[in-house]
């Protein structure tokens, strides 16, 4: 762990526009290293947008202007010598709808390796090992070790979502961004993903967007409440839920709007 960076991600005066619509307004936030940070807020308040800033993947969506500073692991990611490829390797994202690639389970897991390494560096043994390690880490190895060559899109949703997390792991990411990872899953699937997140806690910095207040409460260490592109409150989770400082937070967590 980098001692000069007690926070995995910090932003200073971050503003973001889609065309002329301002989606993020002066966001200043510092997210802790190695813990789970929850992000809550009503629909359209900019949670996904903020998440996509952290690996600059927003820029792939077109018409985006950003000002301000974002530091990931102490490094300003808008520095001209920052490689987006290396950044995204370290900061991976998991989506609301599981999006395994339409290739085999095996190839999904090694996809990142294939992209970041020349072919000759990737021996069969190295790939096999990466697959076993990643799938073990997300708890899929036992189920899938005999089905590594089935098409990933034919798995159950919960397995697909775990696979999407596993796909990030061979790249040794430091931050994993999860954008409502459970909202397409049933109760069992949700619990499985939450358990997995708790497993991964400590080894990775996890940032999870969720609409589910109870989920934010269950699994996050710190919690960020957003409204209309602004950060309203950011505190330890139990404090935010029990003693919210801002009346808007109180109203939201008590379900008076959302």
């Amino acid at each position: 762990m980098n001692p000069t960076a007690p926070h995995a991600i910090t932003t200073k005066g971050l503003n973001l526009w889609y065309g002329t619509f301002q989606a993020l307004v002066d966001v200043n936030v510092a997210l802790p290293h190695g813990l789970i940070t929850g992000m809550i807020g009503p629909s359209g308040c900019g949670k996904t947008t903020l998440l996509r800033c952290f690996n600059r993947v927003n820029e792939r969506y077109g018409g985006v202007t950003t000002t301000g500073e974002i530091r990931v692991l102490g490094r300003n990611i808008y520095d001209p010598d920052v490689s987006l490829i290396e950044l995204r390797k370290a900061v991976g994202m998991v989506f609301q709808r599981p999006n395994p690639l339409p290739i085999s389970v095996y190839e999904n897991v090694v996809f990142g390796l294939r992209i970041h390494h020349p072919r000759r560096e990737l021996s069969r043994a190295r790939l096999d090992e990466a697959v076993e390690r990643a799938l073990t880490e997300v708890g899929l190895w036992a189920d899938l070790k005999d089905r590594l060559h089935v098409r990933a899109t034919s798995l159950q949703l919960e397995q697909q979502q775990k696979l999407c997390i596993a796909r990030l792991l061979p790249l040794k990411p430091e931050v994993i961004l999860l954008d409502e990872p459970c909202s397409a899953l049933d109760v069992e699937g949700t619990r499985a993903i939450e358990e997995l997140m708790c497993e991964l806690r400590g080894r990775y910095t996890l940032i999870i967007v969720t609409h589910n207040m109870a989920q934010a409460r269950r699994i996050s260490d710190e919690c960020v409440f957003m409204l209309l592109g602004q950060i309203i409150e950011h505190r330890r989770t139990e404090e935010l839920f029990l003693h919210p400082a801002d009346p808007r937070t109180a109203d939201y967590v008590e379900g008076r709007y959302g």
């Binding site: 993947v57 390797k89 991976g92 339409p102």
Partner: peptide
């Protein structure tokens, strides 16, 4: 070709060309 496939690629650091070659064109 669904946007989700491209997003998956971008978020592991694939360049556009790698995305096109490995996912978009085959599909």
């Amino acid at each position: 070709v669904p946007r989700a496939f491209r997003e998956a690629c971008w978020n592991v650091g694939a360049t556009r060309w790698q995305t096109i070659r490995s996912i978009v064109l085959p599909n």
